[in-house]
């Protein structure tokens, strides 16, 4: 599909957490990283919350694929 934004963001977030925990940055850098990390975590949460449940089936109709809701029952 597209590049997996969620995964990239989670990885970035993880590295920021580690950088902050490392404690080698000065205060200004730390504050910037903290803000960046908070922004990323909000975005990640948003991706998780914004999704919508969908179960569909792809059916071929006149040579074209059509997507329809799929109910197993």
């Amino acid at each position: 599909m597209k590049e997996n934004k969620f995964e990239d963001k989670m990885e970035e977030l993880e590295s920021i957490v580690k950088e902050l925990e490392n404690g080698e940055m000065n205060l200004d850098e730390s504050l910037l990283k903290f803000e960046e990390g908070m922004k990323l975590s909000k975005e990640c949460n948003k991706i998780l919350s914004d999704a919508e449940k969908k179960v569909t089936i792809l059916l071929e109709k006149d040579g074209e694929l059509e997507e329809e809701d799929f109910n197993i029952n």
């Binding site: 919508e52 969908k54 089936i57 059916l59 799929f70």
Partner: peptide
Amino acid sequence: TRRNPKTYIRLFP
């Protein structure tokens, strides 16, 4: 659905 209530499944029968 249990693991992710907002999962998106696309079945290709």
